[in-house]
Amino acid sequence: MRLNDAKPQKGSKKRGRRVGRGIAAGQGASCGLGMRGQNSRSGGGTRPGFEGGQQPLYRRLPKLKGFPLVNRVNYITINVEKLAGLPANSEVTLASLEAAGILTGSNRGLLKILGNGELSVALNVKAAAFTGSARSKIEAAGGSCEVAA
């Protein structure tokens, strides 16, 4: 048997309706499409996704990957293990970390302290945000956390 020998079973294919062939055929004149309107016309109907003039879904949604936040907050993150080398009771800010050489490059954003690593020195940390574990490690070492924008 070859692919060109394959045929549908007898009786499985019905012939199509012959519309517009008079009243006796059952689908005469308007061919079952009604009297007027877009869908009764030749070539009538709309393209897929057309919503009747309303702004369609594919144009309402934001473009490209994901839904970017309009006023996104850019954080510069640093772990507490990086702060361990600083002298005791020093004040830690974004400017002081740049001066110490811990942060390099263009640091545009707010400082956020993350809790990876261990800290044994007491530090006065001023940052925009702290994770829960970072706050607990800084305070356990005898330091203080101050939220400053």
Rank of each mutant, 00 (worst) to 15 (best):
N107T: 07
Y75H: 14
L86K: 02
S96R: 13
V73K: 15
L110R: 06
R108K: 12
L94N: 01
N116S: 14
K63R: 14
G117H: 07
A95S: 14
T104D: 11
T93E: 09
T104C: 05
G115P: 09
I113G: 00
L94T: 04
L110H: 03
E98H: 09
F67Y: 15
V70L: 13
K112R: 11
T104A: 12
E98L: 08
N79C: 11
E81C: 02
I102W: 08
G117E: 05
E118Q: 14
P68Q: 09
R72W: 06
L103A: 05
G105I: 10
G117T: 07
E91R: 08
Y58V: 06
R72F: 04
F67A: 12
I113E: 00
T77I: 05
K65L: 11
L61N: 09
L64M: 07
R59P: 06
G85V: 12
I78W: 07
N71M: 03
E91L: 05
L69P: 05
P87A: 10
G105L: 06
L94W: 01
R60E: 14
T93I: 01
Y75Q: 12
V73D: 15
I78T: 10
N116I: 10
N74I: 04
R60K: 14
F67P: 02
N89W: 04
P68D: 09
E118T: 15
N71I: 01
G101F: 04
R60M: 15
R59Q: 15
N89R: 07
S120L: 02
V70D: 15
N71C: 03
L97Q: 01
L103M: 06
E81V: 04
A99W: 08
S96H: 14
S96E: 14
R60F: 11
G85R: 13
G115N: 13
L83S: 03
R108I: 10
T77Q: 05
S96Y: 12
L69A: 12
K112G: 08
A99S: 10
L97C: 00
R108N: 12
Y75S: 09
K112W: 02
I102Q: 10
L83W: 01
V80E: 00
K65E: 15
L103V: 08
I113A: 00
S96A: 14
V70Q: 14
K65I: 12
T93M: 03
K65R: 13
